[in-house]
Design a protein around this nucleic acid. Structure first.
Lengths: 225, 225
DNA sequence: GAAAGTGCATGCGTATCCTGATTGTCGAGG
DNA sequence: CCTCGACAATCAGGATACGCATGCACTTTC
């Protein structure tokens, strides 16, 4: 885990740096807003500790610039000022947490842990097979990055196949998982939807295994010409 | 956005509830740990406000149980005690933010906003999708820069969709997050409000995915079908 | 008490699904 | 190598469930 500290008081900055390093973090320290902004824009950090009372550029300004640039690392804001209106401004400017000086180092570290945990918490569960991607959280499918519109049944079928990538899935298994309970077993709906999916995503995505069922293979895993 | 408050002091609890409701949240209120835990385990919340000093079961215990069950909504912890060791314990137990009593209601709401914003992966307090902008701080919505008047429910629905931009949101999910507990699940209210929002903002903002739900797309991110 | 907001019910139009028939492929055996 | 049977793919038309729009009654707000 890599942390950036932007803090103009050298004493406090150094003290924080060594505390965090003792806790296993890699720490970069910047003492003014301009330099700090540059580091945050160019390097990759898991979290940033930002002092509001900076010379030259205000901390809030720096934060706003990062957010405009699309930087979305979690930011913990430090300030000597203790009025709640400042807190509100900081939080609304895009800060994720707030700590008023003076503070206990233990508390800072605990909040940092919580921030990083949460930031990594919403990782999107994405299934990938070749040039097809299916995000189960958002329920959306892309082909070579281009979004593809699937109907409800098409999505269900593709989703099941991608969850069982590489495995041969029989028609009855598909019917059992896509439809509820009693459904006319001898109908060719599955074939119909396989056809439709192939039309939208390309024929190669779903392989037919004659007499057994279908299979969805990842070309990367099994390179074949 | 739907919030759960677990607070044993009835006066404070009610006061918080109405404050949040005035700010457009759907709020469930629980006055003891056991009931609160049950609600948090069974219903869908976007954030939880949890008092540590509860009768029967301790707040920290409740929080720990939720996290063990895999519940990962953001939790804001309240406590009368002001020692930092309690804060550390709370944060390590899985809390995402911390507020010591007494506090300003404005600060609570600001922190709540920040929590929800981060939980949905957004860095800025202003949500943008195409030519529609929604400022969560002021509760204003603009279309091509022109302010648009939305009713309370319309705003709630749009806000939820914008917090989950790109995701396909089912009708039940919308109902669960816009309304509190008891509400008739099978009604066409959602469709009605979708219609009304489309009338005000244009039909293109909300996409219908037949059989699955609705989705709010950013034209920049999704150029063509 | 007027005005605005909310939620339910109705009828309508259409995208989506399923069915059944037809056409197309594969593979074994002559 | 050709033929034939079995299985799979495709096509198109009708049925249906789904979502949309509108009107109306109830509630809330000022």
């Amino acid at each position: 885990m890599r942390i950036l500290i932007v803090e103009d008081e050298p004493t406090l900055g150094q003290q924080l740096k060594s505390s965090l390093e003792q806790n296993g973090y890699a720490v970069d320290l910047s003492t003014d807003g301009e330099d700090g902004h540059f580091l945050g824009s160019t390097e990759e950090y898991d979290a940033v500790i930002l002092d509001l009372g900076l010379p030259e550029i205000d901390g809030l300004t720096v934060l706003g610039m990062w957010r405009k640039e699309g930087r979305n690392f979690p930011v913990l804001v430090l300030t000597a000022r203790d009025s709640w209106s400042d807190k509100v401004a900081g939080l609304d400017a895009g800060a994720d947490d707030y700590l008023a000086k003076p503070f206990q180092t233990e508390e800072l570290i605990a909040r940092l842990r919580a921030l990083i945990r949460r930031a990594s918490g919403n990782a999107s569960s994405e299934l990938v097979a070749g040039n097809v991607r299916l995000d189960t959280r958002s329920g959306r499918v892309t082909l070579d990055g281009e979004p593809v519109k699937l109907t409800a049944q098409e999505y269900k079928l593709l989703s099941y196949l991608m969850h069982h990538k590489g495995k041969v899935v029989s028609r009855t298994e598909l019917i059992e998982h896509i439809y509820d309970q009693d459904f006319d077993r001898d109908s060719n709906t599955i074939e119909v939807f396989v056809t439709r999916i192939r039309k939208k995503l390309g024929a190669h995505v779903i392989t037919t295994i004659r007499g057994l069922g279908y299979s969805l293979d990842d070309p990367d895993a099994a390179p074949r010409e």
